[in-house]
């Protein structure tokens, strides 16, 4: 479904990704973890073309992302993305947030889009908040709206960039539950996160990144039991000790 081959990219003079290769199959749930600055967020943002790559290839559902002839906006409808800071549009209600792209990209009618948005918002547990604006919602609620917004495009895969890092601890679970339900429904997911509990419960594979490289790419059980690299071991020690 998503194929990365020797992906390299730099920001100014700093090389952020130094040749990453990985494959995510349809229906897989993959967790990407690693210390800050390892390039995890950048990797995710390269997959839907938000960050350009210098070398290598990324293929989504058979379509090369970095090819000049690729219609990037059209490709992006096939991958949903959830951001660390939710990024809901503050001048619109929850319903409007979820409907906007349906109307202007998928060309659905307003009625059709709103009906679908209502269904999705109910699915994430926010049926009573359709007319609320982001400022009236808690962080956890906002993130659930943003998940609904991504699902509204009927994506084949979902990318999550540290979805719970900006949330107060009490709200982390409500979001993780929604994500777990999505995984159980068979959604292909790539999740950058520090939530190791989620990784243990829901993920099938774990990618460990450090210094712009993928150091580990193993089934989750193997990662948690006996990671092969020293840096991964150090990381796990620090993360699991609290």
């Amino acid at each position: 479904m998503i194929v990365l081959e020797n992906v390299q990219t730099s920001y100014g003079r700093t090389q952020v990704l130094r040749g990453c290769t990985a494959t995510i199959k349809l229906g897989e749930v993959v967790v990407v973890c690693g210390p800050s600055g390892s390039g995890k967020s950048t990797l995710i943002k390269c997959i839907n073309g938000l960050v350009p790559i210098d070398h290598g290839t990324i293929t989504v559902d058979g379509v090369p992302v970095a090819d000049k002839r690729t219609d990037l906006p059209k490709l992006r409808t096939r991958i949903g993305m959830v951001f660390q800071n939710f990024e809901l549009y503050p001048h619109m209600t929850a319903l409007q947030n979820v409907s906007l792209a349906q109307i202007h990209v998928l060309k659905r009618s307003r009625a059709e889009a709103d009906a679908r948005s209502e269904h999705l918002l109910t699915r994430v547990g926010l049926s009573s908040k359709l007319a609320s604006r982001p400022e009236q919602l808690s962080g956890g609620q906002q993130q659930r709206v943003s998940i609904a917004r991504a699902l509204a495009m009927d994506p084949k895969a979902m990318l999550f960039d540290e979805p719970t890092s900006a949330l107060d601890p009490e709200m982390v679970n409500e979001v993780l539950e929604v994500m777990q339900a999505l995984a159980l429904d068979g959604m292909t997911m790539m999740v950058v996160t520090h939530e190791m509990g989620f990784a243990k419960r829901v993920a099938e594979r774990v990618l460990f990144m450090d210094g712009g490289e993928i150091l580990e790419d193993v089934p989750k059980a193997q990662f948690f039991a006996a990671p092969s690299t020293e840096r991964a071991r150090q990381f796990l020690d620090k993360v699991l000790s609290h």
Binding site: N48, L50, P73, I79, E87, V105
Partner: peptide
């Protein structure tokens, strides 16, 4: 915020 642009682009706009 640039995140707003990113989020909007990510939905295919």
């Amino acid at each position: 915020r640039p995140g707003q642009t990113e989020a909007a682009l990510a939905t295919g706009l």
